[in-house]
Design a protein around this nucleic acid. Sequence first.
RNA 1: UGUUCCGUGGUGUAAUGGUAGCACAGAUGGUUUUGGUCCAUCUAGUCAGGGUUCAAAUCCUUGCGGAACAA
Length: 402
Amino acid sequence: MSAKKKKVVVGLSGGVDSSIAAFVLKEQGYDVIGLFMKNWHDTTGVLKADCPWLDDKFDAEAVARKLEIPFHMVDLSDQYRKRVVDYMFSEYEKGRTPNPDVLCNREIKFDVFFDEALKLGADFVATGHYCRKRTITVDDKEVYCLLAGSDPNKDQSYFLCQLSQKQLQKALFPIGDLQKPDVRRIAGELKLVTAHKRDSQGICFVGKVDLPVFLQQKLDTKKGDVILIPPDSELFIRDVNSDSNKASEEILQALSEPYRFNPNYGEKIGQHNGAHFFTIGQRKGLNIGGYSEPLFVIGTDVEFNQVFVGMGQNHPGLFRKGLKISGNEIHWVRPDLELSDDERRTYKVRIRYRQPLQDATLFLKKDGLYITFNEPQRGITAGQFAAWYSDDELIGSGVIDK
RNA sequence: UGUUCCGUGGUGUAAUGGUAGCACAGAUGGUUUUGGUCCAUCUAGUCAGGGUUCAAAUCCUUGCGGAACAA
């Protein structure tokens, strides 16, 4: 007899990707268990009202039946609310723009869900993410690498940028080598109910929400001024030598400093319903027309409830060359590659999902990690995650502090 | 009070006698497992009344509203 089959619990979401993840695992000879997690059932602010988790559960169950694997469900909505949604509200309240899905992976799918899976006796836990894992040996120790999915169009490694070695150790990403169209095709051939289901969008588990409405559950609306900042404002003059090779702490700090707006630098042109409903780079929702080019949010101030905007795609307020991550927020997916004090290293960095990787240099300083980009970046926003890559491997990440 | 100028979609503007266009805003849809971006489509207007003309945003006139100038 061969050794006992390894047991894998796969998170079945009721979508096509996790369906095929389960299928691939089965093909590979694992003992597969499907586990559906219910995370959200509140429909406040959700567009397309029908509360979809039940449909998803039915679909997940149907897939499990078709693949002839056991099916279980866990309700993690309590934890999801506490560890993802509350975090979201609190970040917005501070005027930052969180990425709940990165948190969802770190806190839910690869934490509480993980534990539930292990309770079912799992050796591994699998998800339908488009990314890959590789195991290498460094100093006689196994090290797990998180790689981009093979389908460059669907690579979801960014959302897993906060995973730890411990989490990666038991993780499997069965569809990381597949292209999305192949996933659809296989699902079609297997006649799975999820074969032609639309890809999920919006905050994972919550769905596509009207964000202001969603946030209004906890955050008050409050009228404030919208202020237009001219592109030639002195605020945008950074008399730092953009040759950041010298990389003194001063230069790094200057490059990573958000523009400090105040109404004296511009002109009041309208009103908004709360600065915390806006994020840098945002165009829609200002409700101010009459300009030759669109207006974009270039800064918000929740303390004084002010929104600062600039006209046009190339407004200098939209761009910055550097950002900073607080020392305690630096996360290395590969701890063996951690920078030492005052060390610098070049990486490819993205600051949002699906952004093409940008050439950048990381500097570890006493007060945190500075990242400077070769090209100015649009919409560097506190609360979002910066993730650095070496080729297609995600090395580390952190919440942008400023 | 007098003279002059102006009044076009929600906003900013184009069309000076010949099918009222553009931009921004807004709505809807698409792309996207964050926010946002982006793409497509759509909505919506000649201040009001009278007149000239085959034809008026455009010319004339009255009213209303705004701006400028005025010993």
